[in-house]
């Protein structure tokens, strides 16, 4: 693992739009100046609310769901659910308000890898994969999108995903636990049916609850697919200084750990830091037994 040059900055972003996005989720468009480096799919930022509007102390890590260039800078899109005090306060901010945005942070998906890209999303884990689908389309590549949720109501942003995939000629494969939409079952059930029809090698890019990511990682390891998973963790700084977001390395990753080559900012022999070494990890890098 080679250290990426640190390109992150903290800068003021202006809320351009906040709108409900279905199933209790919100879409946020945030304008940042040109000094903000363009994030890649899978990377994240830390959003800090103005002190007067914030009931929480720490910034909130949030993955980027869209990036568009505009005059004078970038427009970053975020798909989020107001589930905690911080995100509820964010949802209450109107267009025109400012938030501090620190990023881009971490490592994103290796979309340039040769093979058939299969995006695997669980619930609001769709966010970075919408961005990944856009990026693949710009490269002129097609992808498969496997999208699962507990029920049809929680397939958040489904219309958006459908539109983006249609533009690139990609295909959408749905699953719900209750069978209310698509395959009754989970995303791994869809992968089992889909894989025989796809050209190998497969490159899986996944985001969703850790339980789903565990299943996708194991499926990918079993089938020899190159599998990349965007992990979550409680974080404080997001930049590697606080050492607060460890994920357990797999036995093979521990055995192959080269302390002299791995920048310490990226973690240690036992733990990988989610913020700097991730949030996107290859399936073989982590010990899925110990991940909750």
């Amino acid at each position: 693992m080679i250290a990426a040059p640190r390109a992150w900055r903290q800068t003021a972003g202006v809320i351009a739009r906040q709108a409900p996005h279905g199933a209790g989720h919100w879409w946020l468009d945030l304008d940042v100046p040109a000094s903000f480096a363009p994030p890649a799919p899978g990377q994240f930022v830390q959003l800090l609310l103005p002190p007067a509007a914030s009931p929480v102390l720490l910034p909130r890590p949030m993955s980027v769901a869209a990036v568009t260039r505009r005059r004078g800078g970038l427009r970053l899109g975020f798909l989020y659910a107001p589930v905690g005090a911080g995100t509820r306060a964010l949802a209450a901010l109107p267009a025109g308000d400012r938030v501090e945005v620190l990023g881009p942070l971490g490592h994103g998906y290796p979309l340039e890898r040769p093979g058939t890209p299969v995006l695997v999303a669980g619930g609001r884990g769709i966010a970075p994969l919408l961005f990944a689908a856009d990026a693949l389309a710009r490269q002129g590549r097609r992808c498969e999108l496997v999208f699962g949720a507990r029920s049809r109501d929680l397939l958040v942003g489904l219309d958006d995903a459908r539109r983006r995939l249609a533009a690139m000629g990609g295909r959408l494969h749905l699953s719900t636990d209750d069978g209310s939409r698509g395959v009754r079952g989970n995303v791994v059930d869809v992968l089992e049916r889909l894989a025989p029809r796809l050209a190998f090698p497969l490159v899986l890019h996944a985001c969703g609850p850790h339980a789903m990511l565990k299943a996708v990682a194991r499926w990918g390891l079993r089938h020899g697919a190159s599998t990349w998973l965007a992990m979550e963790s409680v974080m404080a700084c997001g930049t590697g200084v606080c050492r607060g977001c460890p994920l357990p390395r797999s036995a093979s990753a521990v055995a192959g750990f080269d302390g002299a080559r791995t920048p310490s900012l990226h973690g240690n022999r036992e733990w990988a830091m989610c913020c700097t070494e991730g949030p996107v990890f290859e399936a073989g890098e982590l010990d899925w037994e110990r991940i909750e």
Binding site: V56, L57, V234, M235, C242, C245, P246, S264, N268, E270
Partner: peptide
Amino acid sequence: APRAGNPPGRIAETPSGMLNSIGLENV
């Protein structure tokens, strides 16, 4: 000696503060 530090969770935000349990992770 290098220290790997404590298992997760290492951070928990609390009202107007945060708890950490890093465990002296260092090189």
